[in-house]
Design a protein around this nucleic acid. Structure first.
Lengths: 143, 143
DNA sequence: AATGTACTTGCAACTCTTTGCAAGAACGAT
DNA sequence: ATCGTTCTTGCAAAGAGTTGCAAGTACATT
């Protein structure tokens, strides 16, 4: 899903119509690195064309999430962020005090995942989670 | 923290002023069982007095979170929910196929919590999390 | 009890996101 | 190439929550 044409084709395959707006959004998100907000995609798209409404951006990003091309996550109090689903799976530690975000590799959750499968017979799917807490500095500052 | 007077005193101890608005919010949340939204607290408080603004409700709930009297959590796509911090911590496994909810004792997350503290120096706070995945039955049905 | 200051509140405006609805457009069928 | 259906979009308004600012008030000080 790294080339925009593949994504466009996939859209059509799923029975969605190919509109210029959707194509521009797809192009814009392939340009982004890491995670991005709807607002950022909007600004990027607007550089190409005035004729796009922010509501369409939101709807398209939502659609791309449903199709598994994007994943979304939210840091409390901040706008929703999107990320390409083909980027390596990872999670975030977010300090509730200072807002620092620490990237967390996927495998950190493997032990928990195995445990839930063993003891609860439940196949947990951690797509893109954000764990809230206190970072080292804010914890030190508190005491 | 089960009696409202204790909470009120605690507020004052921390250097916050005791206003009728804050007292009414504290009384209202002690009335609630389980989790509740800002809107629900607002309605409850409005039954006592017209003279409270929704912004004050939000600010007070926010303050009570900071003080550790409440915790907040959000189910995606739903309004933020608050819960008394002294209620027993509970988590859920939610099957994305059949919707079954499995209760999860708090200590299940302890190993992960310790690991994050050890290796990332991050004090994770798991309050009322919902883990999505597939339960045993739906997994069997799929193969 | 009156006063001053700093904290709080109410209000209105604003941010982020979603939604209803009518107008517009993609695309399969003719 | 045209038509019709159905999907999409733009627009405006609404929902959820936050914020700046001026007015109000709790509380320590006198």
């Amino acid at each position: 899903m790294s080339h925009h044409y593949a994504t466009i084709q996939f859209l059509r395959q799923q029975g969605y119509r190919l509109t210029p707006q959707r194509e521009m959004v797809v192009l814009a998100i392939l340009d982004q690195e890491g995670h991005f907000t709807a607002e950022e995609v909007y600004r990027q798209v607007r550089r190409q064309s005035e004729a796009v409404n922010i509501a369409t951006i939101y709807r398209t990003l939502d659609l791309l999430c449903d199709l598994g091309i994007l994943t979304a996550f939210q840091v409390a109090g901040e706008p929703l962020r999107y990320e390409r689903a083909d980027s390596p799976s990872h999670h975030h530690l977010i300090c509730r005090q200072c807002g620092t975000m620490i990237d967390l590799p996927d495998q950190v959750l493997h032990p928990l995942q195995e445990m839930l499968l063993d003891q609860y017979n439940f196949a947990a799917e951690f797509r893109h989670i954000a764990i809230s807490g206190l970072c080292a500095r804010c914890r030190d500052a508190q005491t």
